[in-house]
């Protein structure tokens, strides 16, 4: 397998994360753009796990605390993310309830599960198939930003609903916690090093590699 698909690291070559140029890692910095060169991101698993723990912890207040406070004719209502979704569902707005459920509850939870699963696979505790790894990694890389939708809704409602004594909306502490969850899980996905997964696979099947890149 390693014979069929030669890895850049075997030759001491690294692809630049910023500009894509392939250079010897011994140079230290990319000769084209100056970015730091490395074969693998350092402490990738530890960083990802630490960020995931922070995100999972923050996920609790994000759901328990109100994301916004509605004051209507003197009546104060505290809205949580789940509460807002249930209101939509009860009023029969099923598509929008499903959108909020997916963006605000499903994606963050799936992302935490997916990154935990990737970290387990990268440390050799799980042995999933490469195509499955690709799909899970793609999901963690691209889907996270959609969770920000509820935060933007809070911003929009706060800007529009300033109707004096009739009705006002103010942001709640849950919104900041939730935005924190989204940003931290995005950083967690960025700090994860997918090549570790392939290093694992290569270890299971280590045939010697050709020693010169010109043998490609």
């Amino acid at each position: 397998m390693s014979e069929l698909f030669p890895k850049a690291a075997t030759y001491g070559l690294a692809g630049c994360h910023t500009c894509g140029k392939v250079s010897p890692v011994a140079l230290g910095h990319c000769p084209r753009c100056g970015s730091h060169l490395h074969l693998r991101k350092s402490n990738s698993i530890q960083r990802t796990v630490a960020l995931m723990i922070a995100a999972a912890t923050l996920y609790i207040p994000a759901n328990l605390l109100p994301i916004m406070t509605v004051v209507e004719l003197g009546d104060v209502t505290e809205n949580t993310i789940v509460g807002g979704m249930i209101t939509f569902w009860k009023s029969g707005a099923y598509p929008i309830a499903i959108v909020i459920f997916t963006a605000s509850i499903l994606i963050p939870l799936l992302k935490i599960v997916a990154l935990t699963w990737l970290c387990l696979a990268a440390t050799g505790k799980l042995h999933p198939s490469p195509s499955m790894l690709g799909r899970v990694y793609w999901f963690t890389e691209l889907m996270g930003r959609w969770s920000m939708v509820d935060i933007f809704v809070v911003g929009i409602l706060v800007a529009l609903v300033q109707l004096g004594n009739y009705m006002t909306i103010t942001p709640g502490p849950g919104a900041l916690a939730f935005a924190g969850v989204v940003v931290i899980t995005m950083f967690a996905a960025m700090s994860f090093e997918p090549r570790l997964l392939w290093d694992r696979l290569a270890m299971l099947d280590d045939t010697p590699s050709p020693s010169n890149p010109s043998d490609l």
Partner: peptide, 30 residues
């Protein structure tokens, strides 16, 4: 020579020129 490295699986490829509208895919992971 110009190389290209897969950002996902680290497979080393020759960076050959492509016709317009075409994409080069990783031989190992796609």
């Amino acid at each position: 020579p110009h190389y290209s490295v897969c950002h996902f699986c680290d497979t080393l490829h020759d960076a050959t020129a492509l016709p317009e509208g075409k994409a080069a895919r990783c031989k190992c992971c796609g």
